[in-house]
């Protein structure tokens, strides 16, 4: 991981780091890489990945509509709302 790639990550995650934060982050990446590399001796090629620690199958719900939430309540904490919409700067599509 280098500063240029990190810039790409910042953009993707909508963040802007200070130079100090960049240095600290690069150091963090290195530590994590080192501790991960230390496990290189463990062969996982024949090990099935485990997505769920308490696995179940087919957890589904019936196609039923529930009581709607109150729009005013949902919009109460909105930084900018208008006419029942959340509002943001003009987005060119």
């Amino acid at each position: 991981m280098d500063k240029d790639s990190l810039k790409g990550l910042e953009r993707l995650n909508q963040l802007a780091l200070t130079p100090q934060q960049v240095d600290d982050t690069l150091a963090f990446f290195q530590l994590r890489q080192a501790e991960w590399d230390a496990l290189a001796g463990i062969d996982t090629s024949d090990v099935e990945r485990m997505v769920h620690v308490a696995p179940m199958e087919t957890v589904v719900r019936e196609d039923v509509v529930s009581e709607p939430f109150d729009r005013d309540e949902l919009l109460e904490g909105a930084p900018d709302a208008m006419d029942g919409y959340w509002q943001v700067p003009y987005v060119l599509e």
Binding site: R61, V65, S66, P68, F69, L74, D83, G84, Y85, W86
Partner: peptide, 17 residues
């Protein structure tokens, strides 16, 4: 989620957290 799947409704009336 269990919000209604209905088009043409007034904005943000079929919405949950």
């Amino acid at each position: 989620c269990s919000c209604a799947n209905e088009s043409g409704a007034e904005q943000n009336t079929h919405v949950c957290p």
